Computed example of a mutant assay.
Amino acid sequence: MGLHYRKTQSDDVSALFEVRGKTRENPISIQQLAQMGITHAAIVAGFESGEWFGWVCVSQERVVGFCTADMATGEVLVLAVLADFEGKGVGKQLLGNVVDQLQRSGANPIWLAADSNAGVRAHGFYRQLGWVPTGEVLENGDEILEWRLT
């Protein structure tokens, strides 16, 4: 199972939707994303304008994970990995690549919104990698975490 990491390209967008809809925890369908204003066209436009950037992990020519960020705000928008590839360092590598790129671009702060439920894998995952809660909580219950250089 060879894994290859590369920057996200506009023609990856359909695969990003597929992965997002098939994650083990918190899958979101194309229809649900569209209701939030997250459409294929909007994502392509974000990547092509340079507003967004990201990294994908590919195994046997198939996208199995991805991480996307907003250059202007420093927000990590999404990190998603297929269940079969969890626990293999894919999420950590993708997130690390995106954080490195945000740091090089001068983003400050670098932040993300994550489920505040300690029973969700992401809760411990981000904290273990050095993300720190700011104390801010969104209306949907997600808490804001900030990347702190260690």
Rank of each mutant, 00 (worst) to 15 (best):
D11P: 01
D12A: 10
D12K: 03
S14F: 03
A15N: 08
L16F: 11
F17D: 01
F17L: 09
V19E: 01
T23V: 15
N26Q: 12
N26A: 14
I28Q: 12
S29L: 12
S29G: 12
S29Q: 09
S29F: 10
I30D: 13
Q31N: 13
Q31I: 12
Q31G: 10
Q35D: 11
G37T: 04
T39D: 12
T39F: 06
H40E: 14
H40L: 13
H40C: 02
A41V: 09
A41R: 13
V44I: 15
V44G: 03
A45V: 03
F47Q: 05
F47R: 01
S49T: 15
G50L: 08
G50H: 11
W52C: 13
F53P: 00
G54C: 09
G54W: 03
V56R: 01
V56F: 14
V56T: 12
C57E: 04
C57M: 09
C57N: 02
C57F: 02
V58Q: 14
S59L: 04
Q60H: 14
E61D: 15
E61L: 11
V63Y: 05
V63H: 07
V64M: 07
G65D: 02
F66T: 00
F66R: 01
C67L: 04
C67V: 04
D70Q: 10
M71R: 15
M71Y: 10
G74Q: 08
G74E: 10
G74F: 03
E75G: 05
V78T: 14
V78Q: 13
L79A: 02
A80L: 07
V81W: 00
L82P: 02
A83I: 04
A83P: 12
D84N: 11
D84M: 04
F85D: 03
G87Q: 08
G89D: 09
V90C: 04
K92H: 13
K92E: 15
K92P: 00
Q93Y: 01
Q93L: 02
L94Q: 00
V98L: 05
V98N: 01
D100T: 11
Q101W: 05
Q103P: 02
Q103A: 11
S105Q: 13
S105Y: 09
G106C: 06
G106I: 07
A107Q: 04
I110E: 03
W111M: 08
L112N: 01
A114N: 04
G119L: 09
R121Y: 10
A122G: 10
F125D: 02
Y126P: 02
R127M: 11
R127S: 06
Q128V: 06
G130Q: 09
V132K: 11
P133F: 12
P133D: 07
T134Y: 09
E136A: 14
E136I: 06
E136H: 14
E139D: 15
E139I: 06
N140M: 11
N140S: 14
G141W: 10
D142F: 05
D142K: 08
